[in-house]
Amino acid sequence: MVMTLFVLVGILIWCEASSGATPLESLIPRKDLPKEWTLIHGPQIYNKKSLFEHINGQAELFLQYGFQKSVFAIYQNKERKENQIEADIYDMGNVVQAFGVFSRFRNEDRPGGFGLDSYLDDHTALFYKSKYFVLLYATESNPDSLRQFSKLISSKILDSSPPLKVLSYFPKNGLKSGSIQYFPEGLLGHKFLKKGFRATYVDDEKESHLFLSVFKDPQEATNALKVYKEDLSKKGKISSANLIPSGIKALKGEDPYQGKVMVLQKGFYLLGVIGFEKEENAENRLAEFVKNVK
């Protein structure tokens, strides 16, 4: 009986280890804390059903981004009890969705030097690494401790996957730092564009955007381009053409809410530039973007 139990426990441990999965609770620092801090609450786990209890309606956004579960904890400064740091670690299922939530939360480019990308201000630290999105909040201005905790948590996430390759497709010239965002649905506010990335560019203080819409296959991308064309023809202005005989399709038009737009298909992507003023700049940027997309 004891032997059977021993074997079972061994199998369980082996399964856990071989799966490569890090138990979420273990990412919460406990014994290895900075010396002036102590854990006073948690780790508390939330799942898809209970997340609403923790963050109210905002849970919807996380579910939209593929939320799996999260762990929450509160740390307290030993000398000043009102000085606390709250830590939320969200398992978002994969690195794209983790980046996606991170990209929706950060206000501007203020990297803190942890995770695959991060944001740090006096009260908040955000970062993503692997499938995890991490959010730390300090009740009092405390960027140093936030950085310390962030680095500690980041070091516990053992997956060392590189940043998303797709982020490197966006041309650097004119790119507003920290502006690339991922949307799991409704890119540019359009259902038919589905999921994808959007980046902001600044030329002469005027903003425009590049976007990359991702589809299941080239046919789906072609269909979406067709729907886009129909939508613009109903609500905006359009001129469209098959640009070259090889079947690469594109359209140009004017969206009633977003301004001028140029879109073209490349494989299972739609790539576009929108909201621009100077056509030449926009065309150059789009051309570079197309070249970068592999």
Binding site: K229, S233, K234, K235, G236, K237, I238, S239, S240, A241, N242, L243, I244, A250, K252, E254, P256, M262, L264, E279, E283, N284, L286, A287, E288, V290, K291
Partner: peptide, 29 residues
Amino acid sequence: GRRKFMKNMSSAFLGVATGHLLGSLPFAR
């Protein structure tokens, strides 16, 4: 190539290309 791409894009977008252009439609119908 980039130059040819630009040429084609510009031509089409400026409405110069022949063939498949739908032409401009009234804005915000």
